[in-house]
Simulated scan of single mutants.
Amino acid sequence: MVNNHYHHLAFGPHTVARQQRRGSYTAYGSQTERPDDGPMRLDRREELLIASRDQFQIATVTESGWPYMQYRSGPKGFLQVLDDSRLGFADFRGNNQYVTTSNIDADGRVALFIVDYPTKQRLKLYGRAQVIDGDDDPELLDRLQRIGETRIAATCERSIVIDVEAFDWNCTRSIIPRYDREYLKDLSDVYQRKADEREAELNKRIAALEAEVEGLKAAE
């Protein structure tokens, strides 16, 4: 049975009422008829998407009650899965407005929007975030600045850790595919390797046929 915690967080009374009027309640809002299953756990599918991304959007709530959206980017994999219920990333030095971090200090609720444009996959995620200054936990910040064998070169002042509440894989219909240079190079390398292998096979076959022809000539 599908965990319904996302439905309980996203579908309030007005949402459910609209779904009932428009005929989509059975597919969505009806999940809230069961008691809330509680926080969801990340699985391999979520881990693979998150580890492959170099950007995402994070929404917080301002102290005046307004939503606030910000773009975050970094080396591929900078948003890290710490375990099956926590994410973390090293926060780069910015323009010193501190809106996102201060919003988190006041109200830890966040929403992340993570998209893989070439494959048209998108993951919506709810969580509760915490800002941890580098001086308070230098080991955590050092860990989040490391991606495999490499280290983030940008100046990082703090860690942001997110306790995952719920997530949902969204419809791919409206996503416009976009391809960066690295993706196109990787794709080109794959096709070039296949072409090289095919060429080697053909050259080997041609050499064998030429040898066969020479043998037939010698036998005449």
Score class of each variant (00 low, 15 high):
Glu165Arg: 13
Asp105Ser: 11
Glu46Ala: 11
Ile114Gln: 01
Asn96Pro: 00
Ala106Ser: 15
Arg45Thr: 03
Thr155Asn: 09
Arg41His: 07
Arg41Asn: 07
Arg18Asp: 00
Trp66Gln: 13
Val99Phe: 08
Arg151Thr: 15
Gly148Lys: 03
Asp186Trp: 05
Asp36Leu: 02
Ala59Lys: 01
Leu123Val: 07
Glu212Leu: 12
Glu201Asp: 13
Arg18Val: 12
Ala166Tyr: 07
Leu187Met: 12
Gln70Ser: 13
Gly29Gln: 02
Leu187Cys: 02
Asp189Asn: 15
Ile58Ser: 05
Arg122Glu: 07
Arg72Leu: 11
Ile114Asn: 04
Lys76Asn: 03
Leu144Lys: 04
Thr155Val: 14
Ala208Arg: 08
Gly38Tyr: 03
Asn103Phe: 11
Ser102Trp: 02
Val115Gly: 06
Ala10Pro: 00
Leu187Glu: 11
Ile152Ala: 04
Glu47Thr: 09
Val213Gly: 02
Asp105Ala: 13
His7Asp: 13
Ala27Ile: 01
Gln192Val: 12
Thr101Phe: 07
Arg143Trp: 09
Thr62Arg: 15
Thr119Lys: 10
Ala51Lys: 05
Leu202Asp: 00
Glu47Pro: 00
Gln19Val: 08
Pro67Gln: 12
Asp105Ile: 09
Ala51Phe: 00
Asp91Leu: 10
Asp168Val: 09
Glu182Arg: 14
Ile206Asp: 07
His14Phe: 04
Ala27Asn: 04
Ala219Thr: 13
Leu209Arg: 06
His14Thr: 10
Thr26Pro: 00
Tyr183Pro: 06
Tyr191Trp: 15
Arg93Leu: 14
Leu48Pro: 00
Tyr179Lys: 01
Arg143Phe: 05
Gln130Thr: 15
Ser102Arg: 15
Ala153Arg: 14
Ala51Asn: 01
Ala90Leu: 03
